[in-house]
Amino acid sequence: MALLEVNDIHTYYGNIHALKGISFEVDSGEIIALIGSNGAGKTTTLRTISGLMSPRAGNIVYAGRDISSTRADLLVLSGISMVPEGRGVFAKLTVEENLDMGAYVRTDGEVADDLDSAFEMFPRLLERRKQLAGTLSGGEQQMLAIARALMSRPRLLLLDEPSMGLAPVLVDVVFEAIQRIASEGVTILLVEQNAHMALQIANRGYVLQSGEVAISDTAANLQRNEVVQKTYLGID
């Protein structure tokens, strides 16, 4: 059974029909890439899954439960965590306080251990532990946003363009981290403009176009797909 099933969802911003019947599924342990050009509906899809928005039609089933109208803060408790577009670190909180907020829902006694693992994954954050997050570089903020999302010990991690605005070296660091997170058993739904990198680490992928799923296939097939190559990989 799939961990996440998205069934024909329609999401609106007021009158704007942003998602026009999107369906896909994510199995436990997979890395799934969602690619598509600007305005295709990638962010809206993640926002609808994470509970920041509700679909007007269709439903979302997570771990066997319909979560279409469950509040975002409650979904964190059931294991969904999201790194929002543009990182969304709390600029006026320190690095450590941001991580504490990631662990807000935790009641077990192992938060300190997870803090250590976060600093081990991203040593640059350890050096800046007491620094305000707003003073970090863009790349460091992205690392912090990912580390923070992991602090709730999610089963499903939603990542919205983690490579956006990063220097190539940092893109590699971030993608290595994503692979490592996946290898520890976290299921990943990855939205990327950088289709090349995303399809390299993903198992399967979906191409969104104007609020609909245009193509769905394994990552390997997508990389060979002529349309994908032309439109999203920049290969003529």
């Binding site: 803060d73 964190v76 965590s81 709390f90 807000y104």
Partner: peptide, 20 residues
């Protein structure tokens, strides 16, 4: 800390599991 987080960004605060 949750108060400060909510005051800075309500949406992201919800993504942390905070009942704003």
């Amino acid at each position: 800390k949750a108060m400060r987080a909510v005051s800075e960004n309500k949406e992201v605060a919800r993504l942390m599991g905070i009942d704003i």
